[in-house]
């Protein structure tokens, strides 16, 4: 594994290796001294062309706890807003000695281009690209589910048989795509629930079931985990695509309210990648309930990103090894 671009690229063994490594990393994070030495002397660049403070901070914490130096590059107020290309920006940062680039970009495939266009020669980690992929989010979600499912004995386990329902704006969601890919690889049984306007044409071949009816899905699928996707209010306006008539109607049909929360199996967890729209896709009651893993997901995110950085960067590249 040279880059992490898409959850779909991970084999079952690779995914489990990342989750197992994350488990070890998580263990170290309960210690007083959280810092570990394996990336000492390395520089990780967070190249963020889109606002996402929480993802950036999570990667930053992960890199720093592995003793890497971190350079944060945010497109806002930078040369990018003056028309500098992704290529020039990336080459500039590489010239400053970046050993890895963590990229968040509004254009689907931008991390893929960075990894394959020949502009730079460093590992690339996709921190979310357009409507495409957000692989570390899927990994932290799987990590969270695996812990809930297997307790202390998670090492080497997958999610075979786990029933997961993902609800919301699948069309625009990189979180949904990454989760479908990774959960399928790990053996989980996934149902996507969305209004028909927010399911992409072509999703019918994805390794999951599709539904328009949240209540029926909860009743029939009895999920172990239900994941609510963020829905942007502007999607209802004509300019935003007119995907649903009103936030109220969306909330009534697809929001996780008190009644739906009660209809879930007792052990089911409620997940959300954040940031939440309380009152739209998730009620305050569901967000704050004991079933909610939202906060846990955030702390698991650091462990998973530590694992990814460790596995991609700690070992020498074959060219370096040969030189030594």
């Amino acid at each position: 594994m040279r880059h992490l671009l898409s959850a779909a690229d991970l084999t079952r063994a690779e995914a489990i290796e990342i989750l197992d490594t994350a488990e070890t990393m998580a263990q170290t994070q309960s210690r007083e001294i959280k810092k570990l030495p394996p990336l000492r002397g390395m520089t990780v660049v967070n190249l963020f062309f889109e606002d996402s403070t929480r993802t950036r901070i999570s990667f930053e914490a992960a890199a720093k706890r592995l003793s890497a130096d971190v350079i944060n590059f945010s497109a806002k107020g930078s040369s990018v807003s003056k028309g500098e290309s992704l290529k020039d920006t990336a080459q500039t940062l590489a010239a400053m000695g970046a050993d890895a680039v963590v990229i968040r970009h509004p254009a689907s495939g931008a991390p893929h281009r960075l990894a394959t266009a020949g502009w730079i020669d460093t590992p690339v980690i996709n921190a979310g690209d357009g409507m495409h992929q957000h692989p570390t989010q899927a990994l932290l979600d799987a990590f969270t589910m695996r812990r809930r499912r297997h307790g202390a004995a998670t090492t080497g386990t997958d999610l075979a048989g786990a029933r997961v329902v993902i609800v919301g704006d699948v069309l625009h969601s990189r979180v949904a795509r990454s989760n479908v890919d990774l959960l399928a690889t790990l053996g989980a049984d996934v149902v996507l629930v969305a209004p028909p306007t927010l399911l992409p044409v072509g999703a019918e071949v994805w390794p999951c079931a599709l539904s328009y009816d949240l209540d029926a899905t909860i009743a029939e699928h009895t999920p172990d985990a239900i994941m609510m996707l963020r829905v942007q209010r502007e999607r209802m306006s004509s300019a935003g695509g007119g995907f649903f008539p009103s936030p109220m109607e969306y909330s009534r049909r697809y929001g996780l309210d008190g009644a739906r929360l009660r209809a879930l199996p007792d052990h089911a967890i409620v997940m959300h990648p954040g940031p939440m729209n309380r009152g739209l896709e998730i009620s305050a009651q569901a967000a704050d309930s004991a079933r909610s893993t939202v906060v846990e997901q955030v702390s698991n995110g650091v462990a998973v990103r530590m694992a990814v950085l460790y596995l991609l960067l700690a070992g020498g590249r074959s060219s370096e090894r040969n030189a030594q």
Binding site: G109, M131, H132, R174, R177, V201, A203, W206
Partner: peptide, 15 residues
């Protein structure tokens, strides 16, 4: 083109 590949790649489709 809007279809299976665009859905996977997350690129807006041209139906």
């Amino acid at each position: 083109h809007e279809g299976v590949v665009s859905a996977e790649l997350g690129l807006t489709g041209w139906p």
